[in-house]
């Protein structure tokens, strides 16, 4: 894995929001991870853990309080010229959560999809523009008759595919998918996930997949990071994470997912996470337990985890 090219490097990213004169919310509090070219990196956690904020900060919807984000080795935060910014906007795109709020209700599907094309001047004639839009619609499994329609005429799944077409229009390399399926029905979720997988193969895309549904995340991701209160508590290959969860929070999260299997559900035992049981003798650090499996822990806990994983 490590021999692969790093596409995105996030180092010690912090995002603190002022909520009052003297109080701040540490939505993201020192998050570090790398995303390799061509992989899908899953970021999971419960509401309010800062996973969406992490995604939005990476793509510069928010200015980071502290930390570095490097995209293809270049720092993308801080002051940048307009042309550099535009270049960055093309390379990194986002798919949003709510298919009802993510499309402008006053624009036709064609105008929505071609917005990126217009901003970046990727097409010169109207004919070219229309062709490109029809092409993109086909890519996401819709047809060109849909181009002149308005978003409210589409179902949630169709809208989400329009959102994907909009992101694809500027030919990005990296897509942040911010809970792209959590607002969709089960049968539609699979459509969108399959589409995203296909597109990844065709266009060599890299995904940051943010979600709270762990079973879907495991299905789509190569590596998964678990977030809890603004910090990543565990990061590993997705199979490894599911087979050998080490951090007690990961364990509790995994044990809480209901699976569509009545027998399994009848025998399920839930593990409850109790944050007070952590070793508090020192500040926990992010440590590698075994290759590519990282856990937020203290030195004492590190030993315990190592033992646990070897048994």
């Amino acid at each position: 894995m490590s021999s692969k090219e790093k596409l995105l490097e996030v180092k010690n990213l912090k995002q603190h929001f002022k909520t009052g004169r003297h109080s701040t919310v540490k939505a993201v509090d020192g998050v570090s991870f790398d995303i390799y070219k061509g992989e899908t990196f899953g970021l999971v956690g419960e509401s309010g853990c800062g996973k969406s904020t992490t995604g939005r900060t990476i793509i510069r919807l928010y200015d980071a309080t502290d930390g570095d984000v490097k995209f293809k080795g270049k720092d993308v935060h801080g002051k940048k010229s307009k042309t550099n910014l535009k270049e960055f906007n093309r390379k990194m795109q986002m798919i949003f959560q709510d298919p009802y709020a993510s499309l402008n209700p006053r624009m036709t599907v064609k105008d929505i999809i071609s917005e990126g094309l217009d901003i970046h001047g990727l097409v010169s004639t109207d004919k070219e523009r229309t062709d490109r839009v029809h092409n993109l619609l086909e890519t996401v499994g819709l047809n060109k008759e849909h181009a002149n329609r308005y978003p409210h005429e589409f179902s949630g799944g169709q809208r989400q595919r329009i959102g994907i077409a909009r992101a694809l229009a500027v030919e990005p390399e990296f897509i942040i998918a911010d809970e792209p399926i959590s607002a969709l029905d089960v049968s539609i979720q699979a459509q969108v996930v399959n589409l995203m997988k296909d597109l990844q193969k065709q266009h060599e895309l890299t995904y940051l997949f943010i979600a709270h549904d762990l079973s879907m995340v495991k299905y789509i991701s190569d590596r998964i990071a678990v977030m809890y209160f603004g910090k990543i508590v565990e990061l590993a290959d997705s199979d490894e994470l599911y087979r050998n969860p080490l951090h007690p929070y990961t364990k509790s999260l995994l044990s809480a997912i209901p699976l569509p299997d009545p027998d399994y559900e009848r025998n399920r035992t839930r593990i409850v996470y109790d944050p007070s049981k952590h070793d508090t003798s020192e500040e926990p650090e992010f440590r590698e337990i075994r290759p590519n499996h990282w856990v937020l822990c203290t030195t004492k806990e590190l030993e315990a985890y190592k033992q646990e994983i070897n048994n």
Binding site: L85, N89, Q93, F96, N104, P105, M107, E115, G116, I119
Partner: peptide
């Protein structure tokens, strides 16, 4: 989210105001 999407596409403030906010 549609305004955020326009921002991530690199829309200028004027474009967002005229194309996305005011029509709505």
């Amino acid at each position: 989210e549609f305004v955020l999407a326009a921002k991530t596409l690199g829309s200028s403030d004027k474009r967002i105001l005229m194309k996305h906010l005011i029509p709505n």
